[in-house]
């Protein structure tokens, strides 16, 4: 019991450059009880995101253009319906819708992918050294990259309409807030889906409803007072409004709404991570 793995590894390697996996001295422990290294978590996350994106776009002819095309088509439909057929009377309607649509597309796409991320990547979960908490995060980050592909188009539209305000530089902060919010939801729905296969359906229905409860193709100021308060409970409403405030010079959401959204996102993320890591050892047996 005296000998450590490191010593044996060095002796055994005998000149060959085998990689000793763990720099710690040997210690028998319950499997997977070892602490997650943040460095490894980040590297795995980035690599898996890259791998996912590479694999999705490589076999198609349009490749990277696809996510942009998808968003532009949806934009065109919304602009036609709510700008021409049922005119909501909003200024700069295409830019207005696009800014909301980008945030929403990411939210809906990421949440859907994250919900199924464990069920659909069973083989990855069976890799002993992969921290499972990586998978929902990867699912959330992949559609962010897709959405960012559309950002230059939005900025070009803004330029044509009269210029990009300096506040646009704060967009990354907002992206981080939305990422935190989405990670919390992702951990909860992904873990829940393993034990209750109905959750992907529930998520799909909820996203459908939430699309209309989020001011994507309308503004909060256009709706009756008594419902505005209710809609502000939806953190995505505040986030979408904030994107518009930064990009289009719309009024900023109130301090209360911002504080509520920040607390909601942070709280949900912490809760999600705690719940996820608490049940993750039970995933494999239930898949």
């Amino acid at each position: 019991m005296e000998k450590t793995f490191q010593e044996t590894a060095e002796e055994g390697a005998g000149g060959s450059e085998a990689i000793a996996l763990d720099a710690r001295p040997p210690r028998l422990a319950a499997p997977r009880s070892t602490q997650l290294s943040p460095g490894l978590f980040k590297e795995l996350c980035l690599h898996l995101v890259k791998r996912e994106i590479d694999a999705t776009h490589r076999m198609t002819i349009l490749g990277w253009a696809w996510p942009v095309v998808r968003q532009l088509v949806q934009l065109a439909v919304l602009v036609f319906i709510f700008g021409s057929v049922l005119d909501l009377g909003i200024e700069n309607f295409p830019v207005f819708v696009f800014s909301g649509l980008i945030a929403w597309t990411w939210f809906a796409g990421g949440t859907t992918a994250a919900t199924g991320s464990l069920l659909e990547q069973r083989d990855l979960l069976f890799q002993p050294r992969l921290p499972p908490a990586v998978l929902p995060i990867v699912a959330v980050v992949v559609p962010l990259v897709d959405v960012l592909m559309a950002l230059p188009i939005l900025l070009a539209m803004l330029l044509i309409e009269g210029g990009i305000p300096a506040t646009a530089l704060l967009i990354p902060v907002l992206i981080v807030v939305q990422l935190v919010l989405m990670s919390g939801i992702a951990w909860l729905t992904a873990a829940g889906s393993v034990f209750l296969r109905d959750i992907p359906n529930v998520t799909a229905v909820a996203l459908n409803v939430l699309f209309y409860l989020t001011p994507v193709f309308y503004g909060l100021h256009t709706i009756p007072e008594q419902y505005a308060g209710l809609l502000k409970l939806n953190p995505m409403a505040t986030i979408v409004n904030s994107y518009r405030a930064l990009l289009l010079g719309e009024p900023f959401p109130g301090l209360g709404a911002v504080a509520y959204t920040l607390a909601f996102a942070a709280g949900l993320s912490v809760l999600g991570f705690l719940v996820f890591t608490r049940v993750q050892h039970r995933f494999v047996d239930n898949l």
Binding site: P26, A29, A30, P31, Q127
Partner: peptide, 11 residues
């Protein structure tokens, strides 16, 4: 029961 393994398992 109980399973104990060293932390550097590869499979």
């Amino acid at each position: 029961g109980q399973v104990l393994v060293s932390s550097d398992v590869a499979s």
